[in-house]
Write a protein that binds this DNA or RNA. Sequence first.
DNA 1: ACAGTTTCCCGTAAATGC
DNA 2: TGCATTTACGGGAAACTG
Lengths: 400, 400
Amino acid sequence: EKQPCMPTHPQKPLIIKTGVQFTTKVRLLVKLPEVDYQLKVKTIFDKDLPPGRVNRQFFILTTNTKVMDVEESSNGCLSVEFRHLTKKHFSKICVLCWSQGPLSVTEELHSLSFEAQFNILGINIDLETCSFPLVVISNVSQLPGGWASVMWYNLLTDEPKNLGFFANPPRASWGQLSEVLSWQFSTFAGRGLNREQLHMLGEKLLGHQASHSESQVSWSKFCKENIPGKPFSFWMWLDSILELIKKHLLPIWNDNCIMGFVSKETERSLLKDREPGTFLLRFSESHLGGITFTWVEQSENGEALTFASPYTKSRLSALPFADIIRDYKVFANGEAPENPLKFLYPDIPKNEAFGRHYNSQQSKVQTIPPMSPGMFDMLTQHLSPLEIETAVSTVNLNRH
Amino acid sequence: EKQPCMPTHPQKPLIIKTGVQFTTKVRLLVKLPEVDYQLKVKTIFDKDLPPGRVNRQFFILTTNTKVMDVEESSNGCLSVEFRHLTKKHFSKICVLCWSQGPLSVTEELHSLSFEAQFNILGINIDLETCSFPLVVISNVSQLPGGWASVMWYNLLTDEPKNLGFFANPPRASWGQLSEVLSWQFSTFAGRGLNREQLHMLGEKLLGHQASHSESQVSWSKFCKENIPGKPFSFWMWLDSILELIKKHLLPIWNDNCIMGFVSKETERSLLKDREPGTFLLRFSESHLGGITFTWVEQSENGEALTFASPYTKSRLSALPFADIIRDYKVFANGEAPENPLKFLYPDIPKNEAFGRHYNSQQSKVQTIPPMSPGMFDMLTQHLSPLEIETAVSTVNLNRH
DNA sequence: ACAGTTTCCCGTAAATGC
DNA sequence: TGCATTTACGGGAAACTG
């Protein structure tokens, strides 16, 4: 009679973090005749998990009983909407015991049960419903793993409540999975993945021959095993890139300036025969959350590719990537420095591609005509002190 | 009979943050004959604050009773040392009501009382002692203000417990205060302030004429009023510099490379007549926690001073300051770029002053002879993938 | 509307338990 | 000992409250 509800982590539902507030929404789908009493809903963690199966046990620390409110914007249909655990009455949960099973924390599924009772025309009616499976984490570092579980579950089963799902998780076809991955990018970064990008990901995950729509990807390969030779799994790597885009590359990602997912071989064949100064942007395959550029350079015996070292969030938070591209200079021995980045692949002039994304003014000392000391004093007096120190200014020394 | 104790914030005692664990140490100064029973100590917040004077009320959330342990390294003298609220049994406190008085949160002084009882030879003995005044904050953003209060209190009174101190705080002489300020730098940054640096601070606080040892500085001027034309007080400004040094400039501060506190006028007169390329490092007076350099430049009509815009923690965490100085380049129109920083004032060659503090290798593209594709593949196979992307490498394009 | 204060919670680091 | 997981808390930002 009531619809399943879901606690909401910002943008990533069905993941709850201990010690952090969460909200849930329960809707009562039957219209009650003149609800003038207040319907109370009780929330219980893992109410009917089979006794031997409980690894970690959680409790709602604040009161677990809330009164439903009629939702302001009832959408005209039969159902009356209610809100549960409003912002002012959050709940916190706490951990009782440690995980001990063969499953990792982010594979362990939990549930929230909701109970309500009301009396209508002398009849006691019990209502009960239950959430979709939840992942409970204790640190945001577990969020990527938790989200992988939520994705895998929702991709591969329609069961509303199979808490043992990860005891023997089914495989996904690459066709299904690639759709989900692209959807991740369009949801969280505003632009999905194109065929070429997905192809690179498929080869990375399945090898050169095996990446067809029907190829099967195991849960382990997706999220648990490390990529050969790397200290992280495929999903951890991909999620780190999503985070990098969300925090530092959103405009240029949405503007399609980032090819991003290109193998080194493809990159080489794309840039081959291109004008010197042609470059493209690629996500690092060796660093988590890194982006770099590769450009064609004129060298003594023909043309060459040069790679910059990856830029990660720490460098990008000091200077936005578009500005890095604008200001990037190569100091060849003794020669004048030059920005080797001229055309975004295939042949878009750099400023045309990135112009609208430049933020700060160029970090270049313009040769300003020297100021007289009197002028300097005047400025010191009348300009806001902030401007004085920020501006790169030149002041005459008055030699006596 | 027992000595006052002190809760310890890392490096800054007498400040407690709500929701964060703290430790205290109570020493029993009388030697008990064969203490084979365990002495329990009870801790109470603001036990005997005059009733009308309580603005905010705090409670220790975990148990407030702890058993004293005999300290491992008893230092041989009469006293037996005890430890209270050990690491494993921290305490948290919580806030009950808001501040309402005329005093700000960091001026509101609190105290912890400790009580213990024991029975010796049939006689019940009650022990009680009390901490020095404490500041209770709720966010680290209040730490500088809290520490200012602790400093002012300890500088200007010997009373062990005057919780109303900030109702009418006494003034400090500049002589006293400057000593405390220098001590702050030597304690937290490893090197104190010299006469010239203190002189600049005195003028900043008191004006050009008024900064003598006997000049009086009010609490308000030190910590509450904003510096004219700036959105922060003197102490907030100075503390932001201390933090900057602690996090990003420790080695070069201790190596005396940073003059730091110089007025613009003094700076001008120091650099006047100096070789072009002479520079010095100064803390920003307009930005919180900023450092900048000023250098002498050869210009058309004589010499000129040029200022760089201040470097703050976000830029310094991307690249250490010594490396910034090494790599700094000015791009004059069309000309070859040049590092204008050559001699640290008065005349120390840059690399002599900063050489030992350079961290990363110079961000300079060495002209590496192009690699053959076979060589590249070999490297790709045998080097760790991390090294490949990090190294700025050059690869031949094999033209067909 | 605003400022002082607190709460919230991410993200890094350290501690913890197995 | 190492790994998985949790705890601790600084720091930025939002929320709160008079």
